[in-house]
Design a protein around this nucleic acid. Structure first.
Lengths: 168, 168
DNA sequence: ATATATTTTCAATAAATATTGAAAATTCGG
DNA sequence: CCGAATTTTCAATATTTATTGAAAATATAT
């Protein structure tokens, strides 16, 4: 397989992958493109490679910056802005986990705390099942929260070797 | 907070949560409703509670069954079909992980294997960056695959206590 | 300061996805 | 087998989400 074809497949499947995880296709594709680009790219580079409009490119780059996955690079003597993605995949994963934890898991746990305190007689099976469900989701969620915190702090080497031992 | 209000909040936020994870809102809401229902429900029950059409209800129930999260229940003496969700949240999480691993992670790893074998001179920085990226994603993906396999087999108590020790 | 290059915004539009509802198929008791 | 109850399908429609492109804003060189 030629590089050009391999790149296309990588970008397109990274985009499809993203859509299964609530990330829009273009954002994932821009990220993929930057991951495999040895040098920083301009908006125009991305527009051309991915055949997307300027507005779309701009908005999705900014979103990637918000997620902490892409950053602006200043190239001396250049008027245009350049962008580059973090290439260390472990760091990328940790960053995504960190953001999703903050945006989704933590608000969910807060809500469950409130819902656990529902009024009503626990002998009513409707109340009991509701509370039991909420409590058990909360318990698992709290454990996940702690585990992810540890992961976010960990070095890849440490993390992998711990898992190795754990799952020998 | 009254039960009725708490239920609504739970269902609605479970639905919103789902959409962040590539699951459609209605499917997540049906799942939520079944999770907090002490007894099995019919399609008509769900239609009424969630204010959705018969067709929508039917399709999403079937999808939940495909995911292994819901099952049909036969109630003797009843003509209608009843449905119930697995209530053990650890089992639910394992089932979701198992399915997503099969549907997404494994195909991705297969693709990366192919892409790693791209033609071209590794001294070309475009080739090098591409291969390096593919290899590092693959490495981490393989580790995740193994870890998730272990998790899928694990009992919750064993899993939590292992994590505890690991991240003491 | 002015002209020009570049980035950003956002209303309009397109595309993708979800939902409806009624017809067709199936199931099941009698 | 018949007929009523129930489930399933799917074309039409509605809704949501993504994308465009041109105008406005901003930045920079001279």
């Amino acid at each position: 397989m030629k590089l050009i074809e391999a790149k296309q497949q990588f970008i397109s499947s990274w985009g499809a992958f993203g859509t299964h995880w609530g990330i829009n296709r273009t954002m994932a594709q821009i990220h993929a493109l930057l991951l495999i680009s040895p040098d920083p790219l301009t908006q125009d580079d991305m527009m051309e490679e991915l055949n997307i409009s300027r507005g779309n490119t701009n908005m999705n780059i900014r979103e990637l910056i918000n997620w902490g996955l892409v950053e602006r690079v200043l190239l001396s003597g250049e008027r245009k802005e350049y962008f580059t993605a973090e290439k260390d995949i472990w760091k990328v994963v940790k960053q995504i986990v960190k953001e999703r934890k903050k945006r989704e898991l933590e608000p969910m746990l807060q809500l469950l705390d409130k819902l656990e305190a529902v009024e009503g007689d626990k002998r009513d099976k409707h109340v009991k099942t509701f509370v039991d469900t909420v409590v058990s989701i909360k318990k698992l969620g709290k454990q996940a929260d702690k585990t992810l915190d540890t992961m976010i702090k960990a070095e890849e080497s440490w993390f992998v070797s711990s898992l190795m031992k754990m799952f020998k």
